[in-house]
Design a protein around this nucleic acid. Structure first.
Lengths: 140, 140
DNA sequence: TTATATTTGTTGTATATGCAACTTTATGAG
DNA sequence: CTCATAAAGTTGCATATACAACAAATATAA
């Protein structure tokens, strides 16, 4: 066996990114499957609850809260505005603006909640012991 | 405070997908930053080591090993072929084919390994106690 | 106050990802 | 053997994501 192959085997086994990315795909797919009937994606759901939890939020707040790039937030919010789930609120700083859930946004959240609960329980089984500490890691 | 807002706060705090996706973005960014000087992405690196660890591998094996969709593997491998890191080996089943690392593929793996080690150590700090059990979860 | 720097979003470009539909090849049931 | 089914990849289409460059507005320094 080549040295490169031995090294690759070591990295494949130890690499956090390999493992975490795979875990992310598997778990995200559980939620995607659950939300699909509602025309809702997990990324959009994340934004919906981030806004909903605050009542209103600026894109910059969402960037920090979810560790997303500002352009990603910009484009995903754009899609959600077109679906009528999110709308603008006037802000003092004219560079920025505040986002809030429309009644339709509230409604989709209500409708999707049982699907979320189902996915959450399924994900807990997949995550096993990881589920009890995954919420404790501090992310800048 | 509205009922929707209370519910959103609960979900935002408890949802595994929100947390795991954020963690994935933060940790993946550590590796992306580290690999960027070599024109290598973390997704490509994952495929390189998955092939390298086996010596040779079919796309279907990569699909199962990394829980990726076959079309994703198809397109990412295509990019890596164009970069000269991966090449084909003849296979018995004419539907399929086997992939292997070229000398150039071995070389990029060698070159990127110190960058991987640096990222791995940085990621360990971010993951904290998660790092010790993240490799133990069984993923189908 | 004015010039500079910072903050906030948007847009161009690129990679990563998944679903559905399709083609080719192999397998299995009769 | 023949036909139906399954397996393996590719391609069309859509979403998610990030970096770089940009524009507009605000804040800061001189």
């Amino acid at each position: 066996m080549s040295e490169t192959q031995k090294q690759a085997m070591t990295i494949a086994k130890e690499c956090f990114a390999v493992r975490l990315r795979k875990l992310n795909r598997v778990v995200s797919a559980i939620y995607e499957d659950s939300f699909r009937p509602f025309g809702l994606t997990i990324a959009q759901f994340n934004l919906l609850i981030a806004i909903g939890a605050r009542g209103q939020a600026s894109p910059t707040q969402l960037v920090h809260s979810l560790s997303l790039e500002k352009s990603t937030v910009s484009r995903n919010i754009e899609k959600m505005k077109k679906k009528g789930w999110v709308s603008l609120v006037s802000a003092t700083d004219k560079r920025s603006h505040l986002l809030t859930l429309t009644p339709s946004g509230d409604a989709i959240l209500e409708i999707a909640t049982p699907a979320w609960t189902f996915a959450q329980e399924k994900a807990a089984k997949t995550l096993g012991p990881l589920s009890s500490i995954i919420g404790d890691i501090s992310l800048s």
